[in-house]
Write a protein that binds this DNA or RNA. Structure first.
Lengths: 347, 347
DNA sequence: TCGGTGTAGTGAAACCTTTTACTAGTTCAG
DNA sequence: CTGAACTAGTAAAAGGTTTCACTACACCGA
């Protein structure tokens, strides 16, 4: 019932030229000499028939596919995956490229098979994504193809990568608090050994130092995990200190949610008594807390976009030299959880 | 430096048979007669060379690609997309199929182009996904290929589809409250005209009716939107009623979050004074509220899985008759926000 | 001996493009 | 008047697989 897709040869017949000519015209090859009227005839014929090239045949001949493979370690359990994929997808779409997605749940064997599958399909490049900033050793097969790491990096910088600039973000968060007059700032970090934890601690310390404020180790606590319970517990420890901090910088928004609860439990208020800054700008949480949370935005969309744009530029041969190690800024999102410090000491 | 990928002809040379034989053996064609020892020779040769078929060439010849296109209306702003994609991906992986993902932001033109792009690439089928239960008119081109709607359906049931069973879910939620002794149950619906709103209201009414409880329209309020502010405001209206409901059934977890706040603002407690049931089981919210929220789980993962499995079965010709309209159950997730009703009336 | 059947394959076409190498005719400089 | 250079194309190969139609041989029954 549906009539056969038109082929190059149908266009050729209709325009009364050869296959070759049609191909040349439609692919806009420079440096060949087909007069304008012939070109117009071909283009018209193609349009009339609604010709679209068969991507398989084209890919077979050209040895590429206008497809980029995306390998992600997990996608279901994090709301960030969506933003990252969206960024990647937008960049791909603009370039006329499409994404082949495989989710590997951190299974090395599955990763290897996914890469094989992608190579079978002649993907032009592979984007390897993790759902939070990590230092990893990527599957060896990844090096056999143009690739880029997204929200991950290698220890030796041997592959191009993009990660959030956690150090700079922590600096900005702490600067924000200092600018409002806070001098005793608690930092609820995570106990997990992830780059974000180290970098943010570095940022926290170096900003204090720049401002001549001595580092006080009792103000830094590691929540067991990065969730609300940890935030509740860790914030409690800080709030019960003799000299209570006037502000809390939290590892993420879920921790901040726990911190809010700890603050409320002690009859204190955000931001009047204690200011809070979160991290991640989780759409489902940060704007809806009471009061809405000031937090650092993780640049997932931007990283997704950058990764694809970068690898496409690489494919076009526009890049030279060492693999780029991109650090993406995390802008601050100011809401209502920060104010000038009120009372000075604990009850 | 990397040596050329081995081809069928390399395997043939090594096994000292013809191309044809290798192809037959490797594709496990039944009904042909290649003796076991020859087969073994071929298989060994393929393994030794690490032969993998070129998917482009194979696709060109076979006129399929072992690829399924996924069109989604948006992926970044909802945490549900991930679960749905994960379900689809898992089902695809098990079947040796891979997903081609395009995100179209509800743009008809872009949708049409995405479908064309996918057809160019010989996708075996297309899954068309929306991020919440909708009745839609899909792009016409979708009917030119095997397809299935995910979290969406047509008005006339002319395409196979899978959606959550919002009616049954609402029934279960209300039954849960009734079983604990509640008789005055408020329902915070959304004012948006979506199938979920109608179906859940139907479910709410019919369960009350089954239990001989008269429907009281003051107990049903439409929050302007489905967010926390709407929940705060709508729950407030219900809590300030002369005869206050002892339980609130909320359109989603964000609304429930607002309801919690309204309850607390009035000096009441969850669940001692007011029980709350949410909807969606949002991972970032429901378990972390205080107390953790009892809610209905949207079956995104299962819908993703079903859609792909279904369309693959369809491709294998295992389906007959009318397009299947699947309604997926939404199991209840019991946490701590429901108790037996305490005091009977308002202060 | 002849025809039929079964075994163990093989050669070549088909899938649809892109690209290379070439031709036939014209123009123009020397 | 010759050879080079240009114009406007075209034929055919190449890309790697699947599949159709066929062969060559052995064996068996009549």
């Amino acid at each position: 019932m549906t009539t056969r897709r038109p082929l190059l040869k149908d266009v050729a017949a209709r325009a009364e030229v050869s296959l070759t000519t049609v191909s040349i015209v439609l692919n806009g090859k420079a440096g060949t000499n087909i007069p304008a009227d012939t070109q117009a005839r071909v283009v018209a014929a193609a349009a009339e028939l609604g010709y679209r090239p068969n991507a398989m045949a084209r890919g077979l001949r050209r040895r590429r596919s206008d497809t980029i493979g995306v390998i992600s370690d997990e996608i279901a359990t994090t709301p960030f995956a969506g933003a990252m994929l969206q960024g990647a997808q937008d960049a791909a779409w603009e370039a006329g490229v499409v994404l082949l997605l495989v989710n590997t749940a951190r299974d090395r064997e599955m990763e290897a098979r996914a890469i094989e599958l992608m190579l079978d399909r002649q993907v032009d490049a592979i984007v390897y994504a993790t759902m939070y900033h990590q230092v990893i050793e990527p599957p060896p097969a990844l090096r056999e193809v143009r690739s880029v790491l997204m929200d991950a990096r290698t220890a030796d910088g041997s592959l191009p990568s993009v990660v959030p600039d956690d150090y700079a973000a922590a600096c900005e968060a702490v600067e924000h608090l200092l600018a409002r007059g806070h001098r005793r700032i608690g930092f609820i970090n995570t106990a997990e050994r992830v780059p974000a934890a180290d970098e943010r601690l570095d940022g926290y310390r170096s900003v204090l130092e720049r401002h001549g404020i001595p580092f006080d180790e009792v103000l830094v606590v590691d929540g067991e995990s990065g969730d609300t319970h940890a935030g509740l517990e860790a914030a409690g420890r800080l709030l019960d200190l003799e000299a209570r901090p006037t502000a809390l910088f939290c590892f993420n928004d879920r921790v901040a949610m726990g911190a809010y609860r700890a603050i409320r439990l002690r009859g204190l208020r955000v931001p009047d008594d204690v200011s809070v800054v979160g991290f991640d700008n989780m759409e489902q949480i940060a704007p809806w807390l009471d009061p809405p949370l000031t937090t650092m935005q993780l640049p997932h969309y931007e990283m997704g976009r950058w990764a694809v744009e970068h690898v496409l530029a690489d494919l076009r041969g526009e890049l030279a030299g060492m693999p780029v190690q991109k650090r993406m800024p995390c802008p601050i999102v100011v809401r209502d959880s920060v104010a000038a410090p009120g009372r000075v000491a604990a009850p």
